[in-house]
Write a protein that binds this DNA or RNA. Structure first.
Lengths: 145, 145
DNA sequence: GAACTAGGTTTCCAATGGTGACTTGATGCC
DNA sequence: GGCATCAAGTCACCATTGGAAACCTAGTTC
């Protein structure tokens, strides 16, 4: 059994703290996780995975993202070496964003996540509806069995 | 080639909108993604994957999480059927959180993400340092080649 | 009866995210 | 000439979110 970051086989992180420990707030791994685990990152990398795109093209594809968040997220993705930005001195300046090799490795690990969302959303919504229904039936929840 | 949500092979989401489209803000898949793509969810599910845990146990393991966020995140995970909560009428009441079968399938897809963070953090930090260094050398960035 | 435990909730403040207006430089339109 | 337009943003402002710390309940030990 490999000692991946998690799936520690019963070991608590405190017992393995010589390894990268995403559960310690100071650990760089945790910072990386904080950085990549946000919805816009997942969506942007997903689009760039299939080819370079321009700023407003991304904005149109990702329904609901604000210009601010798009430019902010792209900037920090560029800073972290996950996407690269190229500006062309065309008539209105054209800026093209593309995924880097490093970013591509991350995008690959994100695919299962989007697939999970796609295939399990129904179950999630069902569970949610059941939870809310029970809430109505029993306004005062019994917390102790 | 399978038509997963992304990796559309050059097709833009607008061309495939009869399928779940995470890029449409109204699509349930997008909501699921928004829900699960946050740092606390990733960390909590990672811990519960290796066995049930109690509230304060989780709090101690996840350095930096506030009680509010822990209880809030657990509550919404429970609502979505990803974790289950059991309270025992012991002396101080004992509450145990465990992962559901549905949650376990999600936790599995999250493992590669933590592994990516672990193995690529160095490259990310290096890219970041280079970016910041260039910023110093050339305070005024040339946006046009 | 004061302090401690577990498992929270509430309150308040700071940071984050969204909205919409503004910018810059070149170009087409009238 | 002057006005609108477009791409790719930035800026100022406001609403929502997240964090810190206090409080709560109920039983237990000192």
């Amino acid at each position: 059994m490999d000692r991946t970051l998690l799936g520690l086989g019963g070991k608590r992180p405190s017992e393995v703290d010589q390894l990268p420990d995403a559960y310690a707030s100071a650990c760089p791994t945790r910072q990386a996780l904080d950085r990549i685990a946000d919805k816009w990152t997942v969506l942007i990398l997903g689009l760039l995975e299939s080819g370079p795109m321009r700023f407003n093209q991304l904005r149109r594809e990702i329904e609901g993202i604000s210009q601010k968040m798009l430019s902010q997220t792209l900037k920090s993705l560029e800073r972290d070496g996950l996407v690269s930005r190229k500006a062309f001195a065309t008539v209105p300046v054209t800026v093209e964003y593309s995924i880097t090799p490093l970013g591509a490795t991350l995008a690959e690990t994100l695919v299962p996540l989007r697939m999970w969302a796609e295939t399990h959303i129904a179950q999630m919504l069902e569970a949610r509806a059941a939870y809310d229904r029970d809430d109505e039936d029993a306004p005062v929840r019994l917390d102790v069995a």
